[in-house]
Amino acid sequence: MEGWDAGTKSALTQIPLLSSRAGPRDGEAWKQRLKEEYKAMIAYTTINKTNDNDWFRISPTNPEGTRWEGSCWYVHNLRRYDFPLQFDIPVTYPATAPEIELPTLDGKTHKMYRGGKICLTVHFKPLWAKNCPRFGIAHALCLGLAPWLAAEVPILVDSGMVKHKDDEVTPSQSSS
């Protein structure tokens, strides 16, 4: 579990683990899996809120729950920077982790694949593989996106690639 900061680790351990090994094409089993995903995400959200560490909004865009969209934000120098968020559940899920995309940042940093897919650390994949099928979307967000934002946003802001714009969305309102 090396490679992550203490806050991330403690949050990760608090997220309930999943048990069903099922992908989007597995019918009823996928439903069961989806329920578990929801429960884990609810728990993660609650943990974040109680720790005053709320940093994303997310919701499924189709009833099957294979595509998810939402937003995430990061506070740097007393300013909140909001970014749209989207990803699909791969068919090999849960063996394969979902690829989280931040489309507004596409091309602004090289820690990103084409199409705005974020580059994860070398430690992510083995950990995910080891914990299949116990890790779900909530774990992916916690282990993948949160550290990425913490590492990349300050650099992006300082380099001027990302600008806080008053005429953009107000920090208090979430773009649901």
Partner: peptide, 20 residues
């Protein structure tokens, strides 16, 4: 149940975060 969970997730996300 799934719907209920969805709603719950929504609710959890809408809940006001405790300010520290």
């Amino acid at each position: 149940e799934l719907l209920e969970l969805m709603r719950q997730l929504e609710e959890a996300q809408q809940a006001k975060p405790s300010m520290r």
